[in-house]
Nucleic acid binder design. Structure first.
Lengths: 119, 119
DNA sequence: TCCTTAGTTCAAAAGTTATTGAACAATTGG
DNA sequence: CCAATTGTTCAATAACTTTTGAACTAAGGA
């Protein structure tokens, strides 16, 4: 029941950049980064789009090596692959997240601001 | 005869990431970065693809705000918009270029290595 | 067991991006 | 003026990506 993930050295720069070049996926990554260490299940992202489409975007992120998904019961716990991405592309994730943090045009999660979500 | 460029604050993160998520365009950006300050004309990139397709990719880079194209006679002199990109997305361009520098899968320009090209 | 929750898969449709070739425009040099 | 050089535009096609809904699986609780 383990989902397919690329190994760290299979992660490709153009693929990662392409995958991040989508507002929905960028919003997911930004949110994961804002809650780093806390694994999220997919339902957290349901205000972004439909369940089916979310499944598609989360698969893209996972297949690109940006996120890791662990199957736990009926949930998938999603985390950012920060360690692997930092090793492979130093500084990239941080600069993307910092830039995304300022971007009012990106969709947000949780109804309000990313900073304001949850306790 | 000035070509359309976005202003610095019109440059959008997802659009820049999407535009960089293409091996041909990433190769162009990497090459421009390796020759920073030296304006290139389009013909430098002709080993990557056809003239028509190159025109298309260079337009994408320009419209995203990644490059600037200045019309000089019958040439366009292409430069990286490093200052604007750094202001807008600090560290992003550097980390992308550094990561692209290690990437043997990206096409190269000049017949051999980027480091080895020209004098 | 039956129902609910969480998420996937599949196939179709819609939309977007990339690639091509032929024709075009502008500048420069003879 | 004529030709060459440098690059663009246009329309067609090919190739991908995104979105959708209906049907599905797998786990957990009553």
């Amino acid at each position: 029941m383990t989902l397919p993930h690329p190994t760290a050295d299979q992660i490709s720069l153009p693929i990662v950049l392409g995958v991040l070049g989508d507002p929905t996926r960028l919003a997911i990554v930004r949110y994961l980064a804002s809650k780093e260490g806390v694994p999220m299940n997919c339902s957290k992202f349901l205000d972004l789009t439909s369940k089916t489409n979310l499944s598609y975007h989360l698969a893209k992120l996972r297949e690109a090596g940006v996120t890791r998904a662990e199957v736990v019961g009926t949930s998938r716990l999603i985390t950012l692959r920060r360690d692997d991405l930092d090793r492979r592309f130093p500084g990239l994730l941080d600069s993307v997240i910092a830039a995304a943090g300022d971007d009012a045009a990106l969709p947000t999660i949780g109804g309000h601001d990313i900073e304001a979500a949850d306790a």
